[in-house]
Design a binder for these strands. Sequence first.
DNA 1: TTTTGATTTAAACAAATGATTAAAACAATA
DNA 2: TATTGTTTTAATCATTTGTTTAAATCAAAA
Lengths: 207, 207
Amino acid sequence: MAKQLKKIIDTSTEAKIKEAAKKLFTQKGFNAVKTREIATEAGINLALLNYYFRSKQKLFDIIMAENLISFRKGMSDVLNNEKGDIYKKIEKLAIYYIDTLKENPNLALFVINAIHDNQHDIFNSTEDSLHQSRKHFAKQFLKEIQDGKMAPIHPVHLMSNIIGLIVMPFLAKPMMLKRLHVSEKEFTQIMDERKKLIPIWIKAMLK
Amino acid sequence: MAKQLKKIIDTSTEAKIKEAAKKLFTQKGFNAVKTREIATEAGINLALLNYYFRSKQKLFDIIMAENLISFRKGMSDVLNNEKGDIYKKIEKLAIYYIDTLKENPNLALFVINAIHDNQHDIFNSTEDSLHQSRKHFAKQFLKEIQDGKMAPIHPVHLMSNIIGLIVMPFLAKPMMLKRLHVSEKEFTQIMDERKKLIPIWIKAMLK
DNA sequence: TTTTGATTTAAACAAATGATTAAAACAATA
DNA sequence: TATTGTTTTAATCATTTGTTTAAATCAAAA
């Protein structure tokens, strides 16, 4: 059967399990999710989880890998492309991540948690193909400073600021909605505003 | 000072359990921590956990409450004080949270996770005494906009930016250290720089 | 010293949980 | 249709995990 077609329509047991697992693991993490919960969510017999994926851990590893790929995809797509100045790239990053996190706000917390326990060695350089592209971005950043267009700050500042401005509203989303009396729709709108605002802000900050 | 002294001297069984539980729960969350692990870490017999705290859940609830208090303390101390313009307040917030998170970087992720599962109803208005003080801050913010000193943006933007700039480097700390080849000491130094930089940045962004 | 109540301990319990098994149902194909 | 390999199921297993128990130890008061 055609693989591409299969993926879209795929209603197979294996796909149902993976889908349920992804939803639950991404939302609640490894330890908070029980195999029986996944089975119920997927509407399948408990034993099929082990039949198709050997163990809960191996299933989780697959979800982890897929989630990291979605998260890295935006980075490599933007940074690998040599065109565009630093602020254009920041805008592209903002657009990609805001759109991704609008779809799946839990992804942010999932990745942050993964960074912290790091049982998957997610910073493994061979695994992580972004090493090169990041170097080019770093060069652009240094040049910007040398040309006097940007204040001389440590890369940790720049990274913290970019990631912080893009990701934080999603990490704090439940609080934002409740505390600032914002609806889902308004929230989405505000996030879309940020796609344009963040590069402008970063530029203004680092002048 | 008296409190710290007490903390050091208090070597009672109850205190040892709470200390171990706080360390582990804050680091790994409720589900990843097992009662036997707490007992070992505290160097006490397993049964004493239930003897002093009834259940794992009740022990966790206490740690949760204490952690939320540390986290809210900075907010109320700064916002309750009517003195100071908005940027002075932002600086005070930055100083408090950066110092707090330097001491305990895991606190950030713990609170974010608490915001998400929210089994403790942490936005409960009666529980949360900050309601009033926040209102005054909001007024200051609106006045700033009406006076044309600040761009007219949604409060969600302001909140996201302030929290994002302060908290994100700690959430992403393990990545920062590894990826940007930064030592613990350098990281601390950079975080201290941010105390002054963040209010300046916020001002520049929102001009 | 004896008594009394509080604390600590080793052992055990019951429920939850991840995994396995053996049989049944199903699907294809010869 | 009969055969064969695959998928699904109900039942069960083994371990983990939160909690309890009953006895032992300790410390202060009588």
